[in-house]
Amino acid sequence: MRIAILGAGSIAYGNAALLASLGHEPVLWSPSGRSAGSLANGEPLVAQGAIEGRFRMDVARSIAEAVGSAEVVLFALPANGHRMAMDAAAPHFKPGQVAIISSHTSFSGLYLARAIAERGLDIPVVVWGTTVTAGRRAGDAAVNVSTVRAKVDMATIPVSAAARGLKICQVLFGERFVERADALAISLSNLNPQNHLGIALCNFTRMEHGETWGQNENNTDSVGRLLEALDAERIAIAEAAGYTVRTIREHYHLSFHVEPGPVGEMARELAARGNGGNGPTSTDTRYVLEDAPFGLYPTVLLGRLTGREAKLHQAGIDIFSALYGRDFAGENDLLGPLGFADMTLAQLKALVRDGWPVEKAA
C-alpha cells in the first residue's frame, strides 16, 4: 500500500522505516523542502535500534504529488505544523482515501475533518493517542528508533467509520491498535504533554546548557510524583466527561513492557535496560514548544468544560511562558478556528462522534 507521510522529522522517518520493513511504499514530503534531500537523491534511509535496515524512499516534490499518489495520508509532524500541513493537503484529497494523524493533539482531527468536508468529500480521519515509533533522526538519511509501541490507542472521525479506520491501521502497522470510543477519548488518553511538562521543567537547565542526559535516568522519584499528580488531573477530567482512560502506570506498562509501579521506579527499570534515549539538549524542543500550546492548553480548556480544574497543567503553561517570554496558550492556532471556546461539552462530543456534515460544512 502506498502511504504519503507528511513530515520529515524523527516520527516521519520512524514510520517510513517501519512501513517499508512491512512491505509498504511510503512517500515522504518535507514541509520545509530542506529535509530528506539525501533520500530524494537515492540514498537509503538507514534505521537502527528497534528497526534495523536500509530502505529506499520516495520523496515527493510537492504535497500535491504526495497526497495525490497515495491511498493513505499520514500526518507525522509536530502539532505546531498541523494546521499548515492540513491546509496544504486538503485541496488534494480524493475519494477513497483515509487520513491518519500521528499523534492527535489539540483536536487537529476535527480541523482536518472540517477541511475535507468543505470539499464535499467523505473521508475518515483516524487519530492516534501516541506515535507508533519513538526515536531520533540521526541525519538527513538515518533514524534511531528507540521503540515500536506494542499498543496504540486510536479512534476515527466519524465514529461510524471506526471499523474501516481500524482495518487500515492494522493492514499498515499490524495488530497493535486499541480502538477507543472517539477522538475526545484519544485526546484524554494522550499522556505525552503532561509527561514532557514534568520531565522538561525538572531538567530545564540541562536542556539550556546543552547537556547530554538520560531521560529515564533523570525521571527520578520526585519527577515521577509530579507526573502522577498531573495524571490525576487528566483522569479526573476524563471521568467527568464520561470516559475511562489508561493511567500513566498502565501506559508505561503497555508501551514499554515494564512491570507496573510508581513512575520513578518504572523509569529506573527502563534506564537500567538502556531504554528511553536521551532528553532534549536544547530549549528549542517540542517538549515545550509543541506540548505547551497544543497539549497542555487543550487539557486546561477541557478542565473548564467539565468543571475539573487542571491547575498543574495551567501552572506548567504559565511557568514555561515566563521562562521563554512567550504566550504559549496564545500560540495555539487550531482551537480558535474550531470555535472551541464557545462549545459546550455536548457539542464537542457530538462533533467527535459525527464529524462535520458534508452538506453543511461550508
Rank of each mutant, 00 (worst) to 15 (best):
T147Y: 02
V67K: 06
E43N: 01
E239M: 04
V143N: 00
G307I: 07
H82C: 15
A361E: 11
H196D: 06
G53F: 11
A20K: 09
V59G: 10
S187G: 15
L301E: 14
W128M: 15
I157A: 06
T285H: 03
N192K: 00
G330A: 15
T212H: 12
N80R: 04
G9W: 09
A240C: 03
G33L: 13
P91K: 05
E25T: 10
H196T: 04
N218C: 05
T247K: 03
L39Y: 00
H196V: 01
S103H: 13
V178R: 15
G355L: 12
N332A: 13
Y297A: 12
R83E: 08
R2W: 00
I100H: 03
G42N: 06
F256P: 12
D58L: 06
V171I: 14
A138G: 03
V145R: 00
P280K: 00
R61D: 14
R353W: 05
G264H: 01
K311E: 08
T105A: 15
M154I: 06
G303Q: 03
N190Y: 09
L172Q: 00
L74I: 04
G264L: 08
T283Q: 06
A272S: 13
D153M: 07
S102D: 07
G316S: 00
H313F: 05
A310W: 08
H92A: 13
L323V: 09
D58E: 11
I248G: 15
A232D: 11
E65D: 14
D327S: 02
Y297S: 06
A134K: 13
A113V: 03
